[in-house]
């Protein structure tokens, strides 16, 4: 299929040429990099300082298996129609939270202006959740 939408971290990438085959999800390395930030290099799949060694079964005909990579990383993967969403691993979430360094995020206000938690560094921040419901 060529019209897959991938949700990875806060990225939404539409019209990705991805082939679902059993447990596999084959992508061209360039598409994988665009959708996930993970780049196929000689050391493995790399993003930032991290590199993950590529297992022999993860590549075929010049494509990379994103589903196998996500399983290896402990990331949940869910599919609905042409949309495929990836979650975070328990370890990533746990480490981020228990480091006590407040995880950063960027969200819009009512006018669409983006704000990051890190904009408030140097102040005490009292953050509270609410909902219209």
């Amino acid at each position: 299929m060529t019209n897959t939408t991938l949700l990875y971290d806060d990225r939404v990438t539409e019209n990705v040429a991805a082939t679902r085959e059993g447990q596999h999800l084959w992508l061209a390395p360039a598409d994988m990099q665009a959708a996930t930030g993970w780049k196929l290099e000689t050391e493995g799949l790399c993003r930032g300082d991290a590199c993950v060694r590529v297992q022999p079964t993860w590549t075929k005909d010049g494509k990379v298996d994103l589903a196998a990579f996500a399983r290896h990383m402990g990331q949940p993967m869910l599919e609905d129609g042409n949309a495929i969403a990836f979650g975070e691993s328990v370890g990533t979430r746990h480490d981020a939270l228990f480091s006590l360094e407040a995880p950063d995020f960027t969200l819009p206000d009512l006018d669409g202006k983006l704000h990051s938690l890190s904009d408030f560094r140097g102040k005490k921040v009292f953050m509270f959740s609410w909902g219209s419901y």
């Binding site: 979430r93 407040a102 995020f105 819009p108 009512l110 704000h115 140097g122 953050m127 959740s129």
Partner: peptide, 29 residues
Amino acid sequence: LIDEAHVVAELYGITNVPQGVWIDEQGRI
């Protein structure tokens, strides 16, 4: 801020409203 995907809930383990989190000047919880 508006969090349509409940990202902050996921990041901070927030399960209800209103819940508060205090973060100091160095960005520590």
